[in-house]
């Protein structure tokens, strides 16, 4: 069995946007940058748990819609003077499909 789960077509996520994926333990936000890279992060800002999937995506960062914290999509780290981190999960694009690492689900169940 492959270790990657086919989630959706890349086109289902808008460029510079995000969509949510439901898991047994909360939502994961899957982001697509202007250059068609994808990233998966917990959908909760380290500040006040704002839904990052609803933020504005710029470069490889997203700005939380609640209080404008800027979070790196690559590391999950808050940028600038803010401190905090959200969990990130392996994600990639293959032949126009968005794939998530199956291991991340297990990790979330085990946690």
């Amino acid at each position: 069995m492959s270790n990657w789960i086919d989630i959706a077509a890349l086109g289902d996520i808008p460029q510079r946007g995000a969509r949510m994926v439901k898991t047994a333990l909360g939502c994961v936000a899957v982001f697509r940058t202007g250059d068609d890279q994808v990233f998966a992060l917990d959908n909760a800002c380290p500040h006040k748990a704002g839904p990052l999937a609803e933020g504005i995506v710029h470069g490889t960062s997203v700005t939380c819609p609640l209080h404008n914290w800027v979070i790196s999509l690559e590391t999950g780290q808050a940028q600038g003077n803010d401190e905090g981190q959200v969990a990130t999960y392996a994600a990639r694009v293959e032949e126009g499909r968005v794939l998530l690492d199956r291991a991340f689900l297990r990790a979330r169940v085990a946690a």
Binding site: A8, M20, L100
Partner: peptide, 15 residues
């Protein structure tokens, strides 16, 4: 309408 809903539901997958 689709864009307002989750892209996928993996709740069962995890179980």
């Amino acid at each position: 309408a689709e864009t307002y809903r989750p892209l996928a539901n993996l709740s069962l997958e995890a179980a």
